[in-house]
Each structure stands twice: as structure tokens, then as C-alpha cells.
């Protein structure tokens, strides 16, 4: 048991080193930004304002990825009793909330350009992210009002699993709730989704998950260091 934990740890360490990841995200995000502003042509319908799309959508998908990662780690905690999964799940939720906040902010700005309002209840994704934002903020409330220990890990893990079920259910609910309002058909990937627009989007879609993963690893290493320091202090005391 102990040895297998050690090998898992060893495998975890040999993944990709943090500086390499940070360098990769630096290069990728910078290139993506350059493409967004200087290479991608203006959209035929929306003109310049369509350029928010590249980061907005990529960030949204990254946030979903973070929540899914959190649920996966939560499952590992409950199922395999992986001792490190609890912290990893928490850090994934944290990243997901940061990127979710970004989705809300960029989406709100986009709504202002396109429709003249800062908030639109008819935008499914925005409303979904608002619900998820509230849900995962409650995750932090839950986590910080339980003393550290196996129970906190269990409660957090179960709640993170709820989240991944809530995402599709809420999405369906928001779709259903809109039937009284006229549907907004917004063709993001219509016929004009090609060439440099596609390249720029793909670049952004690669860059932002890499950035999220870098931040995840950074925070994880800081949190681990914190934990180890605490252990050390107990030993020394």
C-alpha cells in the first residue's frame, strides 16, 4: 500500500516540470493573443467584437475541464483512497472558479457589445456559469467550515461529484426554462468558422488549458509545501 503510494508519487513527479509548463503557457498564450489581435480577420457579422469569442469560449471549456478534473480526483479519493486526491480536487475547483469568473466577466462584456446589456438571461452558457459559480462558491464555504481531516475530504469530494452531475442537469433546465422566451440562435460555428479564425480559436483552446494546468500545478505545489511545513512544525514542536 505504502509502496504503491510512493510509486504514484514518483509518477506524479516525473510528469512535466512546472517551469516547462510555465514556459509553454507563456509562449502559447502570447501567440494566441497575437493571433487574436493581429492575424484573425474581422468577423463578417460581428466585426471586431467577435474577437472576445476566442478567449471566452476557450476559457469556458477550460473551466468545464477543471470541474471535471475536480470530480475525477474526488472519485479517486472516494474510490481508491488516493491520499493526494483531496487536495488536487480542491485545487481543480479553485481553478474552475477562477476561470468561471472569467467566463462571466468576458461574457458580460460580450453581451454588452452585441446586445447592449451587461446581463442577458437568454444566454444559456452565462446563466449556467452563474449557477455553477454559486454552487462552487458554496463548495468553499463547506470546505472551510469543516476541520481538516478525512471528513472534510469526504464531504468535499461528494460535493464535487454533485457538481459534475449538476452541470448537464442545469444546462437542460436552462434550455427548458427558455421555451417561454424566444430562442436566441447565435451561430458561433456557422459557415464563417474557417481559415485563420479556426486556427486562432484552436490556438487559444490549447493555450488556456495549458495556462490553467500551470496555475493548478503552481497552486498544488504551494499547498503541498504548506502542508509539509505544517507537518514539520508538528515534528519539531
Amino acid at each position: 500500500m505504502n509502496r504503491s503510494a510512493a510509486t504514484i508519487q514518483a509518477v506524479g513527479r516525473t510528469r512535466i516540470s512546472l517551469p516547462v509548463l510555465a514556459g509553454a503557457s507563456l509562449v502559447l498564450v502570447t501567440t494566441a493573443l497575437a493571433f487574436v489581435f493581429f492575424v484573425a480577420p474581422n468577423d463578417a457579422d460581428q466585426g471586431f467584437s467577435q474577437r472576445i469569442f476566442y478567449f471566452h469560449v476557450s476559457i469556458a471549456i477550460t473551466a468545464y475541464g477543471c470541474f471535471a478534473g475536480a470530480a475525477w480526483k474526488a472519485l479517486r479519493h472516494l474510490w481508491k483512497r488516493d491520499p493526494r486526491a483531496d487536495l488536487e480536487s480542491y485545487v481543480f475547483v479553485h481553478q474552475g472558479v477562477i476561470f468561471g469568473t472569467l467566463v462571466l466577466l468576458t461574457g458580460s462584456i460580450w453581451a454588452k457589445i452585441s446586445w447592449g446589456h451587461w446581463w442577458l438571461w437568454s444566454e444559456d452558457q452565462l446563466v449556467l456559469f452563474l449557477v455553477l459559480f454559486l454552487f462552487y462558491c458554496a463548495y468553499f464555504m463547506l470546505r472551510f467550515s469543516v476541520d481538516p481531516g478525512p471528513q472534510r475530504a469526504n464531504l468535499s469530494a461528494v460535493y464535487a461529484l454533485f457538481g459534475v452531475v449538476l452541470i448537464p442537469v442545469s444546462f437542460a433546465a436552462i434550455r427548458l426554462s427558455k421555451q417561454l422566451i424566444h430562442p436566441v440562435v447565435f451561430t458561433r460555428d456557422g459557415p464563417n468558422f474557417h481559415g485563420w479564425i479556426l486556427v486562432t480559436y484552436c490556438l487559444a483552446q490549447v493555450a488556456l488549458p495549458v495556462l490553467a494546468y500551470t496555475l493548478y500545478r503552481l497552486e498544488l505545489s504551494a499547498k503541498r509545501l504548506d502542508g509539509r511545513l505544517r507537518d514539520l512544525r508538528e515534528v519539531l514542536a
Partner: peptide, 15 residues
């Protein structure tokens, strides 16, 4: 904490 945990999850029920 209960309302905070519950209300986001209850949104689909309300819909």
C-alpha cells in the same frame, strides 16, 4: 450553510 448548498442544486427543480 444549508441554503447555500441547496439553492444552486434546487435550480433545476424550480425550472
Amino acid at each position: 450553510i444549508l441554503p447555500l448548498l441547496f439553492l444552486p442544486l434546487a435550480m433545476p427543480i424550480v425550472v
